[in-house]
Design a protein around this nucleic acid. Sequence first.
DNA 1: AATAGTTGTCTATTACATTAGACAAATCGA
DNA 2: TCGATTTGTCTAATGTAATAGACAACTATT
Lengths: 241, 241
Amino acid sequence: MTVLKDVSGGVALWRRIVDAIRLDIIGGKLAEGDRLPTEAALAERFSANRHTVRRALAVLADEGVVGAEQGRGTFVRSARRLSYPIGKRTRFSEGLAGQARMLTTQHLGDRLENANATVAAALGIRAGSKVVRLDALSSADGKPISRATTWLAYRRFPDVAQRVIGGQRMTAVFASYGINDYSRASTRISARHADVEETQLLGLAPGAILLVSEAVDVDSDGVPISYALSRFPAERMELVV
Amino acid sequence: MTVLKDVSGGVALWRRIVDAIRLDIIGGKLAEGDRLPTEAALAERFSANRHTVRRALAVLADEGVVGAEQGRGTFVRSARRLSYPIGKRTRFSEGLAGQARMLTTQHLGDRLENANATVAAALGIRAGSKVVRLDALSSADGKPISRATTWLAYRRFPDVAQRVIGGQRMTAVFASYGINDYSRASTRISARHADVEETQLLGLAPGAILLVSEAVDVDSDGVPISYALSRFPAERMELVV
DNA sequence: AATAGTTGTCTATTACATTAGACAAATCGA
DNA sequence: TCGATTTGTCTAATGTAATAGACAACTATT
């Protein structure tokens, strides 16, 4: 069991306690139904005041991760984190099938943009070329699990936005352009704090950590067809290569 | 350009400004040598006071990311983040070759443990079996870039600790056990805040974000040979699949 | 029924984060 | 050289984080 404290670094102690306890739960040190150490014991472990621990527990209770029962103790309610597989043939919905009952993807908007240097390099086109940008939010069992922005070359996929709004999966949309197979060329993974927009859309506590993946898909000739920037809440998701 | 603010979520505003500006720099919106917006402009962008922005800039200056010059402005000093490739044939030192002048790995310690459920499952052995645990810290050009813990079955690699202390790379150590080829079976990636020990070892500001990778390597027969838990500072590293 | 152990609530105090304003010091161009 | 722009420093006020202690409410065991 790790001990925190020392200096804050701009992250409040109650917040670090939240992260530490959630890590114990997700990491399997505490199983569903287990009783947590008493507030007094946790306060000692984290060299914090009992009130500070209570604030952390209140956050976890709010998230549904733990539940307190007066006189008895505080118990682990739900311990699961989804795994998102990444590989040559990554398909969003297939990968999560079986891990959640209901998977939904909500179209947030689309627009025509001029490719910036990053997007242009990923898609192998000139900077400034027209690209279609799609914004989407995916949820599993009602809880948001990813906020994705996808760019595609306008020249090749001029009306991709309409087809996506039609409710089709990307696999089907690509097929409608005659692309019956595609694969993952590269995935870059980083991590950072969520900003306010992401916090709201993903239903996170401000200051939550995101796993950020930048993925390029290519058709069977190796030509890039899409560049996707996906943001996953680190507390609900992990990526498996 | 993203705007932050709203509620804190336990992460101080100056800290979120640090993360946001660093992201702009690493993400290429600001190149090395570029002048940042003035403190007044940044204060407006983040809906913060100039003093709060100054605190954030002081942290970035301390990290060597930016430098302020009275009367002139604040400039980007160093913008690079290392990329760590992950794939079937992941080799630590090869992957980073060319990105840093000097790569060192420091052995922090080793001990005999009884495998817990996680380690046992990864190595395909019984929980409670004896395993050798190795702790190491890797640095590029003097800056720590990963803190790794590796477990190997004691039965198969009884004196692996001595051989590692001898200064050999894992590739050579495995070869000394007759394993001339091995590959990566799976990699799980998550993210969280650093705890105090990690903060100190990796030379990070408290509250820094870590990319956590759990990797299982297998020999040519597909038998697991090692389970490695590596922690990378998200501000200095990204993972590329 | 009594008691020990646990969570729930209240008040008070101290340290840190943030805002606010004013002015000094350095740089650059007109 | 002047004036506008920018970073550096100081003082002060306010709100949130964290500590501290006391006691109520509830649970389980003896």
